[in-house]
Design a protein around this nucleic acid. Structure first.
Length: 424
RNA sequence: GGAGCGUUGUCCGAGCGGUUGAAGGAGCUGGUUUUGAAAACCAGUGUGGGGCAACCCACCGGGGGUUCGAAUCCCUCACGCUCCGCCA
């Protein structure tokens, strides 16, 4: 959430954020509401102060055995008026809050401006597209032939957009998850968590999925719980409503979870294979850091994700997202896209974002700064490291051989019981 | 699902309906003492909001109510603990 003080201090900044993120919000209406709110507060608090003062006098009078009926009647009227004002204020604050929640985070200075993905800027590349002396096949054919996925099973069990991995397919998925997690906890200094897959409304609002993304999430009405669309939600919310000690920061957390997305607006896109599905696996990295370090932390976070692709020997490119393509809550974002020769396109396997204080403000994650002795909002970041099944697709399609077998990258072999080739 | 108990500041923990923003600890910060450290002693130390300011207001799990006045009484919801039932 944006700082509501900005409604009176710098509404232009908020309008700019909306314009850059291509979001339409009536900032001027909020500015007016904010003024009304302050007027009411003034009157309300004056009356409360009066009531507090007189009430003490009533106490004193009664103790002295004097009659206080008249002033008590007066104060009853004051109380009624306060109640009235407080109700008015409540309504205004609700509307103000709704508007505040719908204002996106301002992209940091120097972010490329643009309307959509066409304006994203490629900032790095690693490796190159592998050369095949045969026509590389798409993963759905390879998986079918090797019995790695039961393509009928997912739809039969849950519906289209669900995948039933099988045999070496299931094991390869698990190998990638373990490889990613182990790397983060042994080499990159992250602490592993294994959170619930359902989160409550407070968590969803804290990280910014609600109210905007409600349509994209699976919701259990009876319990008012949401299936998490990413581990970012539970992991970032671990410290919701807490004041951390300065010495605890930075916090590096990682978690594997399944992720659930209704993909409400994506009908017809990537329907073939398992590029876009309703349930997928992902290892996520989350950082909670001091403000002055967050942009540097974003670079190292991105480095952690990139290293995984490098060790798998997969060619990828890094995009810096333009203002219109950065997510609602983020200030700066890199996407890592891995090359998939069978699909003949780049696939997004990681999105690394700096949210600065936007999520922290919503989720109320603060820390006590030792130097200034102030309680301030922390900065939060997160990034995939990495998202399945796209990483799996890349491994399969890049390592295929003319006979349809698949070489297993060196770093994964120990997780596959020493297996070197699938289908040999 | 039923019954009982509980939820107070960074943490632990008191709290009769009126001067309690909240006793007492712990922690933290500063000071005295010490060759230095520890200990001891003294002082300070919550969050949010309104106002140029003096200052004022709100906050004792969330929401509502009673009252001139609520951390304290009532209702309700959430969470936690204990016991019972049910299931694994």
């Amino acid at each position: 959430m944006i700082d509501i003080r900005l409604f009176r201090e710098n509404p232009a900044f908020l309008k700019e954020a909306c314009r850059l993120k291509r979001v339409n919000v009536d900032v001027d209406a909020a500015v007016k509401l904010d003024e009304q709110r302050r007027d009411i507060i003034q009157e309300e608090e004056n009356l409360q102060a009066e009531r507090n003062r007189v009430s003490k006098e009533i106490g004193a009078k009664k103790k002295a055995g004097e009659d206080a009926a008249e002033v008590m009647e007066q104060m009853r009227k004051v109380g009624d008026r306060v109640k009235e004002l407080s109700q008015q204020r409540g309504e205004i604050e609700q509307r103000l809050h709704d508007i505040a929640l719908s204002i996106p985070n301002h992209p940091g200075p120097g972010e490329p401006e643009g309307a959509g993905e066409e304006q994203n800027v490629e900032v790095a590349q690693w490796g190159k597209k592998p050369a095949f002396d045969f026509e590389p096949k798409p993963h759905w054919e390879l998986c079918e032939k090797l019995g790695m996925v039961d393509w009928k099973g997912g739809p039969k069990l849950a519906g289209s957009g669900f995948v039933l991995y099988k045999g070496t397919g299931a094991r390869l998925e698990r190998a990638l998850i373990n490889y990613f997690l182990d790397t983060h906890i042994t080499e990159n200094g992250y602490t592993e968590f294994f959170p619930p897959y359902l989160s409550n409304r407070d968590c969803m609002t804290g990280t910014g999925q609600l109210p905007k993304m409600a349509e994209d999430m699976y919701h259990c009405e009876k319990d008012d719980l949401f299936l998490i669309p990413t581990a970012e939600v539970p992991v970032t919310n671990i410290h919701r409503d807490e004041i951390l000690d300065d010495s605890q920061l930075p916090l590096y957390y990682t978690a594997y979870t399944a992720c659930f997305r209704r993909e409400a607006g994506a009908a017809g896109k990537d329907t073939r294979g398992m590029i876009r599905v309703h349930q997928f696996n992902k290892v996520e990295m989350v950082k909670i850091v001091k403000p002055e370090t967050s942009y540097a932390e974003l670079e190292s976070l991105r480095g952690n994700a990139e290293k995984l692709l490098q060790n798998l020997g997969l060619h990828y490119r890094v995009l810096q997202l333009c203002s219109g393509d950065i997510s609602f809550a983020a200030a700066k974002c890199y996407d890592l896209e891995v090359w998939a020769p069978g699909c003949d396109k780049y696939l997004e396997v990681s999105s690394c974002s700096n949210f600065v204080d936007f999520q922290a403000r919503r989720a109320n994650i603060r820390y006590k700064d030792k130097e200034t002795k102030k309680t301030v909002f922390a900065h939060t970041l997160n990034g995939s490291g990495l998202a399945l099944p796209r990483a799996m697709i890349a491994v399969i399609e890049n390592n295929q051989q003319p006979d349809g077998t698949i070489r297993i990258p060196k770093v994964l072999q120990r997780y596959m019981g020493g297996m070197e080739v699938i289908g040999a």
